[in-house]
Simulated assay, not measured.
Amino acid sequence: MDIRKLDRTAVLETVRLVRQADPTHWDLPTPCAGWTLRRLVAHMAGQHHGFAAAAAGGGADLADWRPVETGGDPSAAYRDAAWTAIDAFARPGALTREFTLPEISTTVRFPATVAIGFHFLDHVVHGWDVARTLGVPLELDEATTEAALAFALRVPDDERRLVADPLFRPALPPPSGASTLDLVLTSLGRSPDWSAAPAR
């Protein structure tokens, strides 16, 4: 499994999706409770910059991870941030580093393949968040979603999911006939049936 290839696939899918947003979409709610699409995309862009810093040997400063001010052209700002991470992971030596990921641990450093796996999983899930917000399909092949499921099932479903603003909510039971992507989502506390439409 080439984690950099998987990550690039997932991240470029998020770029494709974000490009479809127009000015009427940025204030829409997303599956991330309390977050508009603009806030979600700013967070995703910040994560790209943070991981790029970690790939270069930095990343310990939480300022590296702060959401990006996307300004008047959020799609362009997001695209640029995405390529910052893709390019950082592709540099010689990146796969031999240990990454500092302070949002996960301030005491443990992570092997590059594990850290890039976190980034990959995050952007499969956030890609789905963006797709659901826009009402368009997430276009990832089965091999990519199967790899995402393998990473998702390694995420502990413990008390850390019960704190305020957790990285992931407690796992949900999968629906009958769940797809691989559905299993990724439910294992991380997202409902595949989420909709921005108000209940009737």
Rank of each mutant, 00 (worst) to 15 (best):
A53K: 13
A54F: 06
A55K: 15
A55C: 08
A55Q: 15
A55D: 06
A55W: 14
A56V: 01
G57H: 15
G58S: 09
G59I: 01
G59C: 07
A60Y: 10
D61S: 08
L62N: 10
L62G: 10
D64I: 00
W65S: 07
W65K: 10
W65R: 13
R66G: 13
V68P: 03
V68T: 10
E69Y: 04
D73R: 14
D73H: 05
D73S: 12
D73C: 04
D73K: 11
P74V: 04
S75F: 01
S75L: 06
S75K: 02
A76T: 14
A76Q: 15
A76K: 14
A77L: 05
A77I: 12
Y78M: 03
D80P: 15
A81V: 11
A81G: 15
A81R: 08
A82I: 07
A82C: 02
T84P: 06
A85R: 05
I86F: 00
I86P: 10
I86E: 09
I86W: 01
D87W: 15
F89G: 03
F89M: 06
F89C: 06
A90E: 14
R91P: 00
R91V: 09
R91Y: 08
G93V: 04
A94E: 08
A94D: 05
A94N: 11
L95W: 11
T96C: 13
T96R: 10
E98M: 05
E98V: 00
E98Y: 13
E98Q: 15
F99M: 05
F99Q: 05
T100M: 00
L101Y: 12
L101A: 02
L101C: 09
P102D: 13
E103T: 12
E103C: 04
E103K: 13
I104M: 03
I104P: 09
I104R: 11
S105W: 11
S105Q: 12
S105C: 12
T106P: 01
V108I: 13
V108R: 12
V108K: 12
R109M: 05
R109A: 04
P111H: 06
A112Q: 13
A112T: 07
A112K: 09
T113Q: 13
T113I: 01
V114G: 09
A115F: 10
I116T: 12
G117K: 14
F118A: 06
H119I: 00
F120R: 09
F120G: 06
F120L: 05
F120K: 07
F120D: 05
L121R: 15
L121H: 14
L121I: 04
V124N: 04
V125G: 00
V125N: 06
H126E: 05
H126D: 02
G127D: 04
G127E: 02
W128T: 11
W128S: 00
W128V: 09
D129L: 01
D129Y: 04
D129I: 04
D129P: 02
D129H: 10
V130Y: 05
A131V: 13
A131P: 12
R132V: 05
R132N: 02
